[in-house]
C-alpha cells in the first residue's frame, strides 16, 4: 500500500502550524507502518489531548481521541479485549508525563504490548505555550516569563526505571532513524516507548530565540549524538539517541490469558 492509503486525506492540510515537528513524526510513523506492511484494520491508535493528540484524526486506522493523559488507559482496555490488534499511542510530553504520568509508569510496569510514542516538543503548544515537565530549567514560557526553575524528566530513564522493555529516542530531524525505531517498537512484544524530539516554532522557538523550524531542526542535529558515538563520549552534555533497552519480559495480555485458563480449570 502507498503511504497515502494510511491517511485520511479529507482532513488535510492538517491543523499543525507551519514547520511543526509533529507533522514529521506523523510522516515517520506512517512510513513505519507502510514498511511493515500492516493491515490498517488491525491497528488502533488512541490519543489524549493536545496538539500531538490530533494525530489520531489524520490516520486511517481505528482511532480513539480520548481524555487528557488517559490515552494509555483506553489503549490498555482495547489491548486486553482484542490482544491481536496493534495499539499505537502517540502522546505529547505533557500528555504522557504530567497529566498522564501515573498511567505511563504503570503501563510500563505491566509490560502490556502497546507502543507509546512521546512527541516531545517541551511545551504545551495548544493552550498557548505553558512550560511542561520536559521543558527543563532556564526555559521561557508564558507561565515562566522569568525562566523556568524546574528540572525536567528524562523520558528514557523514566521508562527504563518503570520497566518498559523497549526504549528508544530519536528526533524529527532524523526522520529515517525515527522510522526504523518505530518499526522495531511496533514489532516488539511488550511495552515500548519511543521518544521523538519535536519542535514547536510557534511557542517554544519564538520565546526561546531558537528561531524558525529550520534552525530548531539544526539544534536537533547539533545537540544530539548516537549512543556509543565518539561525539557523545567527548561531550556528555549531548542528548543520546538510539535504542536504550530491548529486552524480553512476560507480557501482560499473555499472562492474563494464563490466569483465565487457570481460573476456568479451577472452576470445573
Amino acid at each position: 500500500m502507498a503511504v497515502k492509503d494510511y491517511l485520511r486525506e479529507r482532513f488535510f492540510p492538517h491543523m499543525w502550524c507551519p514547520g511543526c515537528g509533529h507533522g514529521t513524526i506523523l510522516n515517520s510513523l506512517i512510513r513505519a507502518v507502510e514498511e511493515l506492511d500492516l493491515n490498517k484494520n488491525e491497528i488502533v491508535m488512541t490519543s489524549g489531548i493536545g496538539c500531538s493528540a490530533r494525530i489520531s484524526g489524520y490516520v486511517d486506522f481505528h482511532s480513539l481521541h480520548t481524555l487528557h493523559g488517559r490515552a494509555l488507559t483506553f489503549a490498555t482496555g482495547v489491548k486486553l479485549s482484542r490482544p491481536h490488534l496493534k495499539v499505537l499511542v502517540p502522546m505529547g510530553d505533557g500528555d504522557a508525563l504530567a497529566i498522564g504520568g501515573n498511567h505511563f509508569i504503570h503501563a510500563a510496569r505491566r509490560n502490556i504490548d502497546i507502543t507509546a510514542i512521546v512527541m516531545n516538543n517541551r511545551i504545551y503548544g495548544m493552550t498557548g505555550g505553558q512550560f511542561s515537565p520536559l521543558s527543563g530549567p532556564g526555559v521561557k514560557a508564558t507561565t515562566a516569563p522569568f525562566l523556568t526553575i524546574d528540572s525536567s524528566f528524562d523520558v528514557v530513564e523514566l521508562a527504563k526505571a518503570a520497566g518498559a522493555t523497549f526504549v528508544a529516542r530519536s528526533t524529527a530531524y532524523h526522520a529515517k532513524e525515527a522510522t526504523g525505531y518505530l518499526k522495531k517498537a511496533i514489532m516488539h512484544k511488550g511495552f515500548s516507548v519511543v521518544e521523538i524530539l519535536s519542535q514547536c516554532p510557534t511557542h517554544y522557538g519564538r520565546k526561546n530565540k531558537e528561531g524558525d523550524a529550520v534552525s530548531m531542526l539544526e539544534l536537533h542535529k547539533t545537540n544530539t549524538a548516537p549512543l556509543g558515538s565518539k561525539a557523545l563520549k567527548e561531550n556528555p552534555s549531548l542528548t543520546p539517541r538510539g535504542i536504550f533497552v530491548d529486552v524480553e519480559r512476560p507480557e501482560y495480555c499473555s499472562e492474563y490469558d494464563k490466569i483465565i485458563d487457570y481460573a476456568m480449570k479451577e472452576a470445573r
Partner: peptide, 11 residues
C-alpha cells in the same frame, strides 16, 4: 528522499 521524509505537511 529527505524532503519527502522530513516534510511536516506530507506535501
Amino acid at each position: 528522499m529527505l524532503c519527502e521524509l522530513r516534510c511536516p505537511d506530507l506535501a
